[in-house]
Each structure stands twice: as C-alpha cells, then as structure tokens.
Write a protein that binds this DNA or RNA. Structure first.
Lengths: 141, 141
DNA sequence: TTATGTGCAAACTGTTTGCGCGAAG
DNA sequence: CTTCGCGCAAACAGTTTGCACATAA
C-alpha cells in the first residue's frame, strides 16, 4: 500500500485535496489493479459506505488529470482504471468474442509507435485504448 | 453508388432482406464514409423520412453481422461505420486533445499483428478500435 | 403466407452536472 | 475562513429491447 501513500503525496503536491473518498478510491485501485468505475464504487462502498457513486466518477477523473491514475478505454464496456505508479506499462488486447483481456508488453507496439512518430509526428499512447481481435480459443471454434 | 448495389447483393446472398431502410442506410454510408449512427440517421431522415432511429441502429448492427459494413470504436464518442467494400483497410489514430482522426495504412500494424499471432495466437483486428495519442499540432503546444 | 423487418415508447448502461451543505487547507 | 470536495437527485448520450403491425420473399 506504499503505492497509495505515494499517490497521495503526488496528489497533495499538485495542490489537490486529500479526502476520505480519494483515499478510498486509491486503496481500491491498489487492491485490484484493473477495475471499472462501478467496481471501484463497490469496493469503496464495502470498505467505506456513504461515498457516493458520483464522487467515485469525479475522483477517478481528477486523479487521472493529476496523473496519479491512468485509464484504458474498452469498446462496448466501461473504462478501466489503474494506479499510474503501479503501472508496469502495458497494452490491452480484448477478444471481441469472449471479451477476455490479454496484456502485452508496450515494447511490442514500439515499431508502430516509432513509425507514426517519424512519419506523422503523432505521439502514440498505446496503453490508452484496448486493441481488438480474436483470442486463440475463440479463433479455434 | 455501385458500392451500394454490391452491398445489397451481398446482403441478399446472406439471406437477409433488402428493405427501404437498409437501402437508405447503405446510401448514407456510401455518401459519407465515416459516420456515427446519429449522422446516418440524420442523412437517412433527410432523404427518406419516417425511418426510425432504432431501425438505423438495428440495421447497422445486422449489416455489420452480414459483413457488409464495418465499424470502429472511438473512445468517448459514438462508434463510426463504413461500407466494408469501400474499405481501403486502415486503422484510425485519434488525438486525445483535439479529437482529430488520422488514418494509417493497415500494413503499419502488421509487425505487431504478426507478433501477437505468433506468440499468443491472437488474431488482431487493427481497424476495429481507434488508437489514441497526441497529434503533431497538439504535441507542439 | 410466413418469417423478418419496422415504428414506437420505454428501458438501460455508463457517465456527467447543478445545487446547497460540509470539510480540508 | 474560504475554497474545494461531497452527497443527492436529476439529466445526459448512445444504444437496446418488447411489442404489435407491416412487408419482402
């Protein structure tokens, strides 16, 4: 949970306030690393009832803005969040059939990232949206 | 508009029915190649009033299922659709700051696609979700 | 004629917002 | 003590669904 303390310190240094709700959100993210907002809300509710869902959403937003938390957009599903600190940087692959998510190292995407940077000046953020496809098991059937 | 005829033929060959609404949806997609459902609805409404929005959504869905139309998920925005036939296959890059979309050839993604296929058996569908990052102009500021 | 598509209204999920109260700094 | 965060309820966008009627095949 040193991650939580680090995140809180970073938050404070950015001039953001540290509240019970924010602490709870960060604790939830430390506990389970790839959650959507509703899951965070559930976890927070069980540890610390009385925190409103809207507050969870607002806090996830401001934590992302502060750079303490990162999120990944998942097509046809809720955005998932994780602590930036913890972030062994990776990209998500999602199977369009079974919905299962697989992580791949960010280096695998480097050739593509280099190419779009060189040719278009576009700075790719490969972890920011999940890539889609069909996993081995589903492809077999 | 030969694209529309082709798409209709393909549709019929799959046992799907050809209706006024479906024709209108395909015409709209032929006319403007990267639209979301609401835009299609607007275009259809102006050419062919009386087609309900729900029908647009249902048809886009079944056209995708039939392989006649493809869609791309765009984070924080509506899914965009295009005729598969027309589809010079490409992947979309979206700037998280200005929202602008840039197309890149699918080949650029091949090294990554090959790698996930070889190592994970995962069949990547690179065009299916937009990739995120920061475009040159926004990176400059 | 019969399975499939359609219009309509209503539900649903994920998320955001305006408001006045409460607590962090 | 003042600014920022909070709880609440309500709105929001995008999309889906159950039903009875209409229509393509």
């Amino acid at each position: 949970m040193a991650d939580v303390e680090m995140a809180l310190a970073l938050l404070r240094s950015k001039g953001e306030r540290v509240t019970k709700a924010r602490r709870a959100v960060l604790r939830a993210l430390a506990e389970r690393p790839h959650q959507d907002a509703e899951s965070v809300a559930a976890l927070v509710a069980s540890a610390d009832p009385g925190v409103h869902r809207a507050t969870i959403y607002r806090n996830l937003q401001s934590l992302v803005d502060a750079g303490v938390v990162s999120h990944t957009h998942v097509p046809d599903a809720a955005t998932i969040y994780h602590l930036s600190v913890t972030g062994h940087r990776h990209t998500h692959l999602q199977c369009v059939r079974c919905g299962r998510m697989v992580d791949i190292p960010l280096e695998w995407v480097s050739p593509l990232a280099d190419r779009v940077r060189d040719e278009l000046g576009f700075e790719l953020d490969a972890g920011h949206a999940a890539l889609l496809g069909t996993c081995r098991d589903c492809a077999a059937s």
